[in-house]
């Protein structure tokens, strides 16, 4: 039993050294697209949202929060992952929205921030549609 336990710990240790820990509460577009029925939340401005967004995504940002949060809460149910994105790698709106959704007021989980934002997600969606 000790031998097997040691091998498991050794394997986990080597993996920890070789695989960088995914950012806490962050998710890559590839992994996000594989999740079952996630709730997509678009944290960009209304104009950007109107120009193109993830199909089915809900617009939620600091400006429209009072109007849109009710829709998000209606569509979410326990265990359904929420993925928040904003424009690009450098934007921070998605972090702020995700933090607020996770916070004491709403306490939703799991809430992920999409790494790379809409720019990367849009590219992944285009690649996927080309393959089909």
């Amino acid at each position: 039993m000790l031998v097997l336990g040691s091998l498991m710990v050794l394997g986990a240790g080597v993996t920890a050294l070789l695989v960088p820990r995914p950012g806490q509460n962050e998710i890559s577009p590839e992994s996000a697209l594989k999740l079952q029925r996630p709730l997509w939340v678009d944290a960009r401005g209304a104009d950007d949202f109107a120009q193109g967004a993830m199909p089915g995504a809900l617009l939620l940002n600091e400006d429209n929060w009072p109007r849109s949060i009710a829709t998000v809460l209606e569509q979410w149910h326990p265990g359904r992952p929420i993925i928040v994105y904003c424009g690009s790698l450098s934007c921070s709106a998605s972090q702020a929205v995700a933090k607020r959704l996770r916070g004491e007021e709403y306490g939703l989980a799991p809430v992920y921030v999409l790494r790379g934002g809409w720019d990367v997600l849009k590219a992944r969606l285009a690649e996927a549609s080309q393959r089909q």
């Binding site: 097997l4 091998l7 498991m8 710990v9 050794l10 394997g11 986990a12 993996t15 920890a16």
Partner: peptide, 9 residues
């Protein structure tokens, strides 16, 4: 990290 190795080993 531990779970996959527990299964493989």
């Amino acid at each position: 990290l531990f779970l996959p190795w527990a299964e493989i080993v």
